[in-house]
């Protein structure tokens, strides 16, 4: 796991919708989460919660009450969900995992790595963000810079990372597609477009 090691400097500019989904709270088996079948039930509930969220909103998936999660469950509930988010099925809605650094994350990590995907994880809502899963090394710095800033324009980010605007935009676009950041488009002076990247947690 790679720590993003951020200090929040600016507050997230727009107040975006937040919703918390407690995995151990529903009728899904409580503390013991096993089998793909159970994972599918949780994923369907997560999909419903995401669909009910307004644009740009973040769904916090809190697994802290879960005692154990096997690989099959983790892959079915979170791996496939992350893959659908990366596939653009949920538009600009985001998912953040709320979980502490513990053994339970191993299976989530293994599933996301298998799929070459990642999720943002926090110890608690408002806590310091981390990555679970895998993103290419060169995107880690970009992600860190965006999270450090809270919100940053493409021009400012490019300057910070020493990249040209196109390369910077390509990297940030990849992160946005993976569902790890929010990308906002603003129309700028004559006919131009300016991108702003924001953290989602």
């Amino acid at each position: 796991m790679i720590s993003l090691n951020t200090v929040r400097i600016d507050p997230v500019p727009e107040k975006r919708a937040q919703r918390v989904f407690e995995v151990a709270g529903g009728n899904f088996g409580g503390r013991l989460m096993v089998t793909r079948r159970a994972g599918r039930a949780v994923r369907e509930a997560l999909a419903e919660a995401l669909e009910g969220l307004s644009e740009n909103g973040t769904l916090y998936v809190d697994t802290r009450g879960v005692e154990m999660m096997d690989y099959s469950f983790a892959d079915e509930a979170l791996g496939i969900m992350a893959s659908r988010i990366a596939g653009g099925e949920y538009g600009d809605k985001h998912l953040v995992l709320v979980e502490e650094e513990r053994d339970l994350l191993e299976n989530v990590e293994a599933s996301l790595r298998q799929r070459s995907l990642a999720l943002i994880r926090v110890n608690e809502i408002g806590g310091e963000p981390d990555i679970v899963g895998k993103i290419p090394d060169h995107l880690v710095d970009t992600l860190k810079a965006i999270y450090d800033a809270g919100s940053i324009t493409n021009a400012a980010l490019a300057a910070k990372l020493g990249l040209n605007h196109t390369a910077c935009n390509n990297r940030a676009t990849k992160l946005a597609k993976l569902g790890l950041i929010h990308r906002r488009v603003e129309t700028a002076a004559p006919g131009g477009r300016q991108y702003t990247y924001e953290r989602i947690a």
Binding site: L32, V34, T35, M68, D70, Y71, S72, N107
Partner: peptide, 20 residues
């Protein structure tokens, strides 16, 4: 907890394979 997780996940994964 660590032992329970080891025993339970072994049982759940292998049983799932057999069932599926």
């Amino acid at each position: 907890l660590r032992e329970r997780v080891a025993i339970c996940s072994t049982l759940s994964e292998v049983c799932s394979n057999a069932a599926e």
